[in-house]
Design a protein around this nucleic acid. Structure first.
Lengths: 179, 179
DNA sequence: TTGTGTTGTTACCGATCGGTAACATTGCTT
DNA sequence: AAGCAATGTTACCGATCGGTAACAACACAA
């Protein structure tokens, strides 16, 4: 808890050093992930530099690069976290309307619309990453494509479950809407 | 038409220079605008450098900077062109269903869905620019905001024209959908 | 021919950014 | 106390990018 002021007690004279803050690796990683989660989403993964990330996370740049191989790896971790929360919300919407696929689909869009109305909403994070990184072979793009494919699969299953005559067409339309 | 090969005829010896191609300013400007229109949309205004633009346009970098003050000015020109075409398409959709506001609204989304299905569709160019440039006071963001406001106004007018009970709410929903 | 204005070419500058080396500092174990 | 592993700090590198100066090459008019 209490930080030992070793340096300060040793050098009582002038030019007091600003007390190094030390963070264990696991904590640093967590703080970095939270900083990235907010900064990458709000200001764009491309626009935000690693310096801004470490400043926001309150850690050192080397602490970042000892936890993550590169900024791309950081972007991957960001996408993984976003993906987890995405499906959490998805399943939460489904859980509100148990055993009725049609209502479940409606619920998904109701919840989505509610989130889209919030002032800090900046659109789908996956689409944003896809917009910011046009290189089609970029590793981040694969994560985005995977999310999109998975989403389509689940929408398609729901469309079938509620007896749509054209489940594929319906899934296509809904996927575009969610994007 | 025929380019005079002055240099080639003068130096018959070795190391033949690759024949400078000269372009008048007006043509250069047009070629630059077309290159920007495609590159900025397909690969993102932030990801595309001026070198890529001049290479695509087939002109020299100085020719670009003699026509446009900066890359931001280029981005502005790009947005102006996109805005013009946006309203052209908007009015074209309206013209398909004269004198019936409800059908006009439907037609807008029908045409939009058709465009969104094309493989080279990369979403709304204004939204993409907004995603790529998170600085809220960036000049390009004002153009985007202006387009959004204008769109809302026209949607609102249409919503009133077709007798919606909640025209503002309807305009909000449709604006989000188009985005 | 000789200017004169326009365009092409090159080479460069300064800033930014991702990433790293090297060392100082700290906490923990023995 | 002494050593060791982990962390913080600084300074730096190389690449990229927007932008510019300076000059060479050209077209055209007088």
């Amino acid at each position: 808890m209490a930080v030992k002021k070793t340096v300060a007690s040793r050098v009582v004279a002038k030019t007091e050093k600003p007390a190094r803050k030390v963070t264990v690796a696991a904590d640093a990683q967590q703080q970095i992930l939270e900083a990235v989660d907010e900064l990458f989403y709000r200001e764009g993964a491309r626009a935000v530099g690693v310096d801004a990330v470490v400043k926001r996370a309150g850690v050192n740049k080397m602490s970042l690069y000892r936890q993550f191989e590169s900024k791309d790896a950081l972007l991957q971790a960001y996408l993984v976290r976003r993906e987890e929360r995405f499906w959490q919300r998805f399943d939460a919407s489904l859980a509100k309307q148990p055993a009725d696929a049609r209502l479940q689909l409606v619920q998904i869009f109701v919840d989505l619309a509610e989130r889209a109305g919030k002032p800090d909403y900046r659109g789908c994070p996956f689409i944003n990453v896809a917009v910011e990184f046009p290189e089609r072979d970029h590793p981040a793009r694969q994560a985005v494509a995977a999310n999109k494919a998975q989403l389509w699969k689940r929408l398609h299953a729901l469309a079938i479950a509620c007896g749509a005559r054209e489940p594929k067409l319906l899934a296509n339309g809904m996927a575009i809407l969610i994007e």
